[in-house]
């Protein structure tokens, strides 16, 4: 399975900068699990981060400075506590092909999702345990032949195909592919095979100044 559609470089830079919301980072990590090309680019965004760090002026530490840190390190050496991981590192993908980073949120896999019908042929499941700020992250199941009504976006929207495929004006998206769509772009995806298409869709914060506009443009996708 080869991946044809990748996130925009700007999106990968935002990920490396740590300026994406939790939902975006989850979706992007799910893509990165399978995409060496994007993993390499993310590494490059972190090299940029390291170089930018070097350009900052020093803010000297007051207080004990190094002594305080050394004292903490020495205390921990004596009573080694298990390291708390600030980031969520993933394990390899599960056997049913669900990215492992996502499997943690769907204990029963894709078979056991509690869908809610949105419209004929379209069901959704919102991942409520992911903090997406004003945005959201959800699964969408699109029945074969069903078209998602044309919609615009109040910010950025990322779509990762998990199963099946869809077509839109840009092309055909299969498992592992990411559609990275901007505000103002109108697209009209259609599930184009006999298999139900399951996607993960994340949106970021809506623009504050165009909130009412984005509400008008998002007839039923907004939460």
């Amino acid at each position: 399975m080869s991946i044809r559609h990748h996130p925009d470089d700007a999106t990968l830079v935002a990920y490396g900068a740590g300026s994406v919301n939790e939902g975006f980072s989850l979706l992007l990590a799910a893509h990165l699990e399978r995409c060496p090309r994007c993993r390499r680019r993310v590494t490059e965004t972190e090299v940029l981060g390291g170089e930018l760090l070097e350009t900052l002026e020093d803010s000297p530490l007051s207080g004990g400075g190094f002594d305080a840190v050394w004292a903490r390190v020495c205390t921990e050496e004596q009573s080694p506590a298990p390291a708390a991981a600030p980031s969520q590192t993933t394990t390899p993908p599960t056997t049913d092909g669900l990215p492992s980073v996502l499997a943690a949120h769907l204990p029963g896999g894709l078979e056991d999702v509690r869908w809610r019908t949105l419209a004929p042929g379209i069901k959704q499941h919102v991942l409520r345990d992911v903090d997406s700020g004003n945005g959201s992250i959800r699964l969408l199941a699109i029945a074969p032949g069903t078209t998602i009504p044309q919609h615009g976006h109040g910010g950025s929207e990322l779509t990762l195909v998990l199963k099946g495929s869809f077509m839109d004006q840009i092309g055909r998206f299969q498992a592992g592919d990411v559609a990275d769509v901007d505000v103002g772009i109108h697209h009209q995806p259609v599930a184009d095979t006999s298999e139900t298409c399951i996607c993960l869709i994340a949106t970021d914060e809506r623009l504050r100044f165009s909130d009412s506009l984005s509400r008008m443009l998002q007839p039923f996708f907004g939460i």
Partner: peptide
């Protein structure tokens, strides 16, 4: 106070 999801490169590199 959010999680940041990353991929463990050591693990995926084997794939």
């Amino acid at each position: 106070r959010q999680r940041f999801y990353e991929v463990d490169l050591d693990q995926v590199a084997e794939q």
